[in-house]
């Protein structure tokens, strides 16, 4: 008796499993599965640039109905050109529909390879150059815009009138974010001092921590910065206990739930969905996407754990609105 019920149970289980496996297999018949491959310069969990793309892909996959609708392949920690070229060519020849080269150093490779695969969509960033090819997208983020908003908020919140910026190397969106930030601060109160440090490395967490502590020693009560090594600065702010943090690239609130005021978040989902939709409609590329506050690609994620005074938030929202309607221009 017992054996029999076990047997039935087992059979049921098998039936269920077969069924579970069978359902998705049937689905693609209705709509063709899209295959995306992405190549990234750092790890998918870097709390910064690579993670922003990786999370966007995950969320697009979820919205589309899982693996059956969107297959994602990835190669991470890839920063040299021959390897990237090999990866891009390989994914393209394996029949991936969209190959995303998520790093500005991959441009030459995309330029070389894209003509050989006219039916594959290539997307690369951050840059603004599609090389005039019909199957290449370029994308970039106007990091200075969120930087400006963060700067406005920071200027309203600082009591010591000293703000510290911990940067890696003064290039790319690390530079444009911080330039925007400085403009935002100056728009509120030009007398506020913004001290800047650069550690010369995108990964040196220990030096970043020391830099942040130096800023705090010099009187800064608000810090911000860019790159995956800023987790060190956030830690220093946390140690000090009363120093606030503004993030960029990804939402960094989880690292210091009481001290992160807001983060500028790169949200690539709308762009990815647009690429997929365009591809299904027959367009393979040719345009440049720029994430901005207006098109929703850039978002200011206020941290619910930090009690932001209403008037400060209003100033931040006003800055967002001003950038959106063009009454405020931020120079990168």
């Amino acid at each position: 008796m017992k054996n029999k019920s076990l047997l039935i149970f087992g059979l049921l289980l098998i039936a269920l499993l077969v069924n579970a496996c069978g359902t998705p297999a049937a689905a693609p018949a209705a709509q063709k599965q899209i295959k995306i491959a992405v190549i990234m310069p750092s790890a998918t969990n870097d709390m910064a640039f690579s993670q922003s793309m990786w999370s966007a892909l995950q969320s697009v996959q979820k919205d589309m109905g899982g693996e059956s609708a969107l297959q994602i392949a990835y190669t991470d920690n890839l920063f040299n050109v021959p390897d990237a070229a090999a990866a891009i060519r390989d994914y393209a020849s394996k029949g991936f529909d969209i190959v995303i080269a998520h790093g500005s150093q991959y441009g030459s490779s995309v330029q070389d390879i894209a003509p050989d695969f006219p039916n594959t969509t290539f997307a690369w960033g951050t840059d603004v150059n599609t090389f005039g090819m019909k199957n290449v997208y370029a994308y970039t983020a106007a990091a200075e815009q969120g930087g400006y908003v963060n700067g406005v908020l920071a200027a309203k919140l600082t009591k010591s009138k000293i703000i510290g910026v911990t940067g890696p190397v003064e290039v790319g969106d690390a530079k444009t974010y911080i330039d925007g930030f400085v403009q935002g601060v100056a728009s509120v109160d030009p007398t506020i001092k913004v001290n800047k440090t650069w550690t010369g490395s995108f990964s040196d967490v220990a030096l970043m921590t020391a830099a942040a502590k130096t800023h705090i020693q010099a009187g800064a009560d608000i810090l911000t910065g860019s790159s995956q090594s800023v987790v060190g600065s956030i830690g220093a702010a946390k140690d000090a206990g009363n120093v606030l943090w503004f993030g960029t690239q990804a939402d960094q609130a989880s690292l210091a739930p009481n001290l992160v005021v807001a983060s500028q978040v790169y949200d690539w989902t709308a762009m990815l969905k647009d690429m997929i939709a365009k591809r299904q409609a027959g367009t393979l590329g040719g345009t440049v996407y720029t994430l901005t506050l207006s098109n929703g690609g850039l978002k200011i994620a206020y941290n619910p754990g930090y009690n932001l005074p209403a008037d400060v938030k209003a100033a931040g929202d006003a800055a967002i609105k001003g950038i959106q309607d063009g009454s405020i221009t931020v120079n990168p």
Binding site: S104, D127, N129, E144, V171, G172, T176, N331
Partner: peptide, 15 residues
């Protein structure tokens, strides 16, 4: 050595 076109486009990439 920074690419002048990167400066013009406001991307300031390290290349």
């Amino acid at each position: 050595l920074m690419d002048p076109s990167g400066i013009a486009a406001g991307t300031y990439l390290a290349q």
